[in-house]
Structure formats: structure tokens, C-alpha cells
């Protein structure tokens, strides 16, 4: 679906240069675009397109795979679990991210720099290592459990990972920087005198926040929601590591179809649907991309 339209668009693009070339040297630029786009098509869009194509071709041509997916109880359970965990993690991430971004805006320059470093740091450390740390901290023999027992808050070790709690915790930890940064970028753009002005016009602090600050920060919140929603739907590693096989989400379910049950029909069909949902989100919210990739200003 994406592939043929991209080729068509690529052709249209290649043709467009003759009308807009103001300088003769532009043909070099055309070559660069066409070359790089061809590589992208061959090395990226083609393999993705093959997944989509397979979902309609294997084992028999047609849309039979989609019918059976919609009637498959296991898939229902997995999708339900995915949606539930995703909305929970996105909601938690946005709430905590918004508050943290607000604290960043309010903080003094030194505190803000330190906090921003703390927000950026996890982005650079492999999620494998982070999940490893969570397991070490939260497993029954881990540090958190021994502290809780020593303080007398627990009688017996409790497993805080290899269940939904661990998955939610790991996902929220992973996604928080991606929520904080765009929200903070938007909040930093708000004219800081406006909330004060609202109060001089009669608004209480709470009204000034709800009627002025919140709506003005909404684009950042939307960008964060967009980014974290896309991430949480396709999360693979964290549920696989911290879920301990009990909390199976769509991505892990797909991987099982590829590596264990070898059900390519289910794998490709679910992948296509996931691609479709992601594509739809991007299409609908592409205007938020710029803010979603905004950099923090210190």
C-alpha cells in the first residue's frame, strides 16, 4: 500500500525538478535525492511491503488471514492486554511527564540543568542494561525486597518484576524522557507573563492554570501523547524482559509466531495491522512531529 504510492510519488518528485530548477547545478541535487530514495525503497520499503504482501498471500491469497485474526480469541486477549497496558503506561507517563516538565520550567537555572541531565541520561543507556537493573532491584531476592523486609514492611519477598507491574514500571521509565522533553519545550515557549496577567484579570491561581497555562501547553502534551502511544503499542523488549512471559503484548506475540510457532500468517497480518495503526497515527498527527523531536533548551 505504502510502497506503490511512494514509487508514484517518487516519480512525480523526480519530474518536478525541471520546473523549479533555478540554477543549472541542481541536477546534482536531483541525483542525490533519487539515489537515496532508491536505496530507501530497496532496503526498507520493499522488505516492509513484503510483510504486507505476505499477509494477503500466505497460506492462501485473499483476506482470509484478517478474518481469522478478528475471530481469534488469543489475539483478542493479547490486543486487549496491549491496549490496557499501553493506556495505563501512556496515562502515567503523561501525568508524571507533565508535572516534571512544569517543575523544569519553574526550576532555577542550575537545578534545571541538573534535572535535564537526569532526564537525558537514560536515553543514552541501553534499555537492556536498564531492564537488567530493574530486575536486579525488584526481583524477590533483589535490593528493594531486602530493604522492605529489613524495615519490617514485608514478611516475605514479593516479586515486583515478571508481572504487569514490572512491565508498566519499565515502560514508564523508558517513555518518560520522550514525554518530558516535548512538553518542556512547549512550556518554555509560553510567555511567562500570561499566567500573571490572567490573575490580574481576576483569575485565581487555579483558574490561571486551567484556562491559560494548560491550553497553551497542550501542543506539547499532544506531541508527547503521540510519541508515547506509538512507542507503547509496539513495545517488545521491556514486556519480554520484565513481563516474564505472563504479560504478553502484541510485539512479543508476533515474535512467538515467527520464532516458535512459525505462523507467518498471523505474524504478517498482525504486523500489517500494527503498521497500519502506526501509519494512521503518524498521518493524523504528523504536524506534531516537529515538536516531538524538539530539543531541550537550557
Amino acid at each position: 500500500m505504502i510502497l506503490p504510492s511512494a514509487i508514484a510519488l517518487g516519480r512525480e518528485f523526480a519530474g518536478a525538478r525541471f520546473q523549479i530548477a533555478p540554477v543549472r547545478g541542481l541536477s546534482v541535487q536531483d541525483g542525490l535525492v533519487i539515489g537515496s530514495v532508491l536505496v530507501l525503497i530497496a532496503c526498507y520499503l520493499l522488505p516492509l511491503g513484503a510483510v504486507v504482501a505476505l499477509s494477503f498471500l500466505v497460506p492462501v491469497p485473499g483476506i482470509g488471514n484478517y478474518w481469522s485474526i478478528f475471530q481469534n480469541a488469543t489475539v483478542h486477549a493479547v490486543v486487549g492486554k496491549t491496549l490496557w497496558i499501553s493506556s495505563l503506561t501512556v496515562g502515567l507517563t503523561l501525568l508524571l511527564g507533565y508535572i516534571t516538565a512544569y517543575a523544569l520550567v519553574q526550576a532555577g537555572p542550575v537545578a534545571r540543568k541538573l534535572m535535564l541531565a537526569g532526564v537525558l541520561l537514560p536515553l543514552w543507556i541501553s534499555v537492556l542494561v536498564r531492564n537488567y537493573a530493574w530486575i536486579a532491584l525488584l526481583s524477590p531476592g533483589g535490593i528493594v525486597n531486602s530493604i522492605l523486609i529489613r524495615w519490617g514492611w514485608l514478611d516475605q519477598p514479593v516479586s515486583l518484576v515478571r508481572n504487569s507491574f514490572g512491565v508498566v514500571l519499565g515502560m514508564v521509565h523508558y517513555m518518560l524522557p520522550y514525554a518530558i522533553l516535548p512538553i518542556y519545550a512547549q512550556m518554555a515557549r509560553i510567555d511567562s507573563t500570561l499566567p500573571h496577567l490572567a490573575r490580574s484579570l481576576g483569575a485565581s491561581p487555579r483558574q490561571a492554570f486551567i484556562r491559560v497555562f494548560l491550553p497553551l501547553s497542550r501542543p506539547g502534551l499532544a506531541a508527547a501523547a503521540f510519541l508515547t502511544s506509538i512507542m507503547s503499542l509496539g513495545f517488545y523488549l521491556t514486556p519480554a524482559m520484565l513481563g516474564g512471559g505472563k504479560t504478553v503484548m502484541v510485539a512479543e506475540f508476533i515474535s512467538i509466531q515467527v520464532t516458535e510457532t512459525l505462523r507467518w500468517d498471523i505474524a504478517t497480518t498482525l504486523s500489517t495491522l500494527l503498521l497500519l495503526v502506526t501509519g494512521a497515527l503518524v498521518w493524523r498527527f504528523s504536524h506534531l512531529l516537529e515538536l516531538a523531536t524538539a530539543k531541550p533548551k537550557t
Partner: peptide
Amino acid sequence: LAPEARRFGVVPQGYGLFPH
């Protein structure tokens, strides 16, 4: 006294209209 309790209208520099 809090700004909202004063009943003073303010026209700030740059107008400060709420952009949304």
C-alpha cells in the same frame, strides 16, 4: 493582596493577549 483580588485592569507591554 493577590492580583485577582485587586480589580485592576492591566494592558502589558506586547499586549499579552492569550494566543489560544
